[in-house]
């Protein structure tokens, strides 16, 4: 247990000091349950500073990323009020280590979702709105290099996120919703919703099912970032990144020194 608090403190310090650390798996982190306990302790440190839990996020939802990490399962993290940015704002890169951004579909829940056995249909029924999101990930590990367990402990590399201003009920087929990612007005990546586990709601269902193991559920009012639709793009000084999703509108973030 002292390891858990020590590791959480190390990752929290890395984030607040913008100084990356070595992966925890090199220091004895060896199982998924412990990794999620580290994550929980890390989030508790934020809550202790007055932040509020506002939702969840998924990572490693694409098969390509899972293959690259040698795993066959996604992972989840928790997002807090301190991570929320408004669309159109500019991030200060001084406050981050090596941030990358990825476009996602965010689900805003109108009802709680409690596993096990949550289906895509359950997720859609419990969803009040969907909207485009830009998820800024900033691994606290040196060189953005880590294992699945390290990423779990590091709260799925979560750093900041912005949601689009349009909130729409999930009526269209989100699996086929097109997504275009532009950096400084140039299209750099494109995808469709199915890039996340075949349907982004399947990622939300995965998180609801996994939360049962720690006695939690997805709460009404939470936002769930369902996972990167494209490869992440580095945030560089002076750049502006915009994600546009078919039927859902756009979300923009800038970055400065």
């Amino acid at each position: 247990m002292s390891d858990v608090r020590t590791w959480a403190g190390r990752l929290d310090d890395a984030a607040t000091r913008c100084t990356p650390v070595a992966p925890l798996t090199g220091d004895g982190l060896a199982d998924t349950a412990t990794a999620y306990r580290v994550q929980s302790a890390l989030v508790d440190l934020r809550l202790g500073r007055g932040e509020r839990l506002v939702g969840g996020k998924l990572g490693l939802t694409s098969r390509a990323k899972q293959l690259a990490m040698g795993v066959d399962t996604p992972l989840y993290g928790l997002v807090t009020s301190g991570m929320v940015r408004r669309s159109g704002t500019r991030l200060s890169l001084k406050e981050m280590i090596h941030p990358r951004v990825e476009p996602e579909i965010a689900f805003v829940l109108g009802e709680p979702l409690e596993g096990p056995g949550v289906t895509v249909a359950d997720v859609l029924a419990a969803t009040r709105y969907v909207c485009p999101a830009l998820d800024v990930i900033d691994s606290r590990y040196e060189g953005f290099r880590f294992t699945h367990l390290d990423a779990v402990a590091d709260n799925a590399s979560s750093a900041a996120f912005a949601l689009g201003d349009d909130l729409v009920a999930p009526t269209g087929d989100l699996a086929l919703a097109g997504c275009v990612l532009e950096v400084d007005g140039r299209v750099v990546e494109s995808a469709a919703g199915a890039a996340v586990m075949g349907h982004p709601a399947a990622a939300v269902a995965f998180m609801a099912d996994r939360l049962v193991e720690v006695g939690r559920r997805l709460e009404a009012g939470w936002v769930v970032l369902s996972g990167g639709l494209t490869a992440p793009v580095p945030l560089t000084p002076g750049s502006t990144v915009t994600a546009t999703l078919s039927g859902l509108g756009s979300v923009t973030l800038g970055a400065d020194h």
């Binding site: 097109g178 275009v180 299209v187 990546e189 494109s190 995808a191 469709a192 075949g198």
Partner: peptide, 9 residues
């Protein structure tokens, strides 16, 4: 699923 994309590509 092996690839996804959008017309903007």
């Amino acid at each position: 699923i092996v690839e996804t994309g959008a017309g903007g590509a």
